[in-house]
Computed example of a mutant assay.
Amino acid sequence: MSRPSDPEAARSARMARFFAGVMRRQLARQFRAVRIARPGLPPLDVARPVMVVTNHPSWWDPAVMIALHDTLFPGRTGFGPIEAAMLDKYPFMGRIGLFGVEEGARGAAGFLRVAGRLMARPDRVLWITAQGRFADPRERPLGLRPGAAHLLARQPGLVALPLALEYPFWSEKRPEAMLRFGTPVAAREGEAAAEVGARLEAALTASCDALAALAMARDPAAFRTVIGGARGTGGVYGLWQRGRAALAGRRFVPDHEEG
């Protein structure tokens, strides 16, 4: 099946905004909260394009990226690769900035060509689940695919921003969606793709390890909540909680723990 060769031309800003709203509502329904670990997004040079490089623990990862793009990167246009077969199945994804990538050497070359053209402008963000497969957030090594490193080595102006993702359960029926940004990585002059790739994987691993520690600590104060989700357990148990609070003369809080 033929695909648009120019993701910028295929992308619709209106469609991207609409779909981002859909994803935000879905996240609010399905998660207790979407939280970003403090201090949040590191300072970035507005004169340089950004490639957000993430681990890939869940089906929800692209939804989080789409929902939060405008919040995190206002004024920058977002794009991302997707399996070519998925784009064939869901052509509307091309309207929100996703472009198809084939498997194998031909697909890798195509990715570098398209992504390189997109990242030639500073007002762009490329979102990549760099493991290229679903993997437990505690799996080590991360085993990043080499595409992100090759793109960094080819485009010295590009900055890679590591982003750790995890979806643990705390005290509520619904899970938490958690993010933590790491230290930005850029290719040094003359640096080979393998070398910058090793530094990128180390930076993402460090962010994943730090997020794991925060997830185990279960302290909401360590995060900024960017989407407040569904609260409490609902059903008969939720009614019992509400009634018990009324009898005790205290304010009803739908969570087991506030935060």
Results as ranks from 00 to 15, higher is better:
Ser5Met: 12
Ala10Arg: 03
Ala16Ser: 15
Ala16Ile: 07
Ala16Pro: 09
Phe18Ser: 00
Phe19Ala: 00
Arg24Asn: 06
Arg25Cys: 05
Gln26Met: 09
Ala28Lys: 15
Arg32Ile: 00
Arg35Pro: 07
Arg35Ile: 08
Ala37Gln: 01
Arg38Val: 01
Arg38Gln: 13
Leu44Asp: 03
Arg48Lys: 13
Arg48Trp: 08
Val52Ala: 07
Asp61Pro: 02
Ile66Leu: 14
Ile66Trp: 07
Leu68Lys: 07
Phe73Cys: 04
Phe73Thr: 00
Gly75Lys: 14
Ala85Asn: 13
Met86Pro: 01
Met86Trp: 15
Lys89His: 11
Lys89Arg: 15
Phe92Ile: 13
Gly97Thr: 08
Val101Asp: 01
Glu103Lys: 15
Gly104Thr: 14
Ala105Lys: 06
Ala109Trp: 03
Ala109Phe: 10
Phe111Gln: 00
Arg113Gln: 15
Ala115Ile: 01
Met119Tyr: 02
Pro122Asn: 02
Leu126Glu: 15
Ile128Lys: 02
Gln131Pro: 04
Pro137Ile: 10
Glu139Val: 12
Pro156Tyr: 06
Pro162Ala: 06
Arg174Ile: 00
Arg174Leu: 08
Pro175Ile: 06
Met178Ser: 11
Leu179Ile: 04
Leu179Cys: 07
Arg180Asp: 05
Phe181Val: 08
Thr183Met: 10
Glu191His: 11
Ala193Trp: 04
Ala193Pro: 05
Glu195Lys: 10
Leu200Glu: 03
Thr205Ser: 10
Ala210Glu: 12
Ala212Trp: 00
Ala215Cys: 11
Ala215Asn: 03
Arg218Tyr: 01
Ala221Lys: 12
Ala222Lys: 00
Val226Ser: 04
Gly229Lys: 02
Gly229Cys: 05
Ala230Arg: 14
Gly232Thr: 08
Gly234Gln: 11
Gly235Gln: 12
Val236Gly: 03
Leu239Gln: 11
Trp240Met: 13
Gln241Asp: 11
Gly243Asn: 06
Ala248Trp: 14
Arg251Ser: 08
Val253Asp: 15
Pro254Met: 11
Gly259Gln: 06
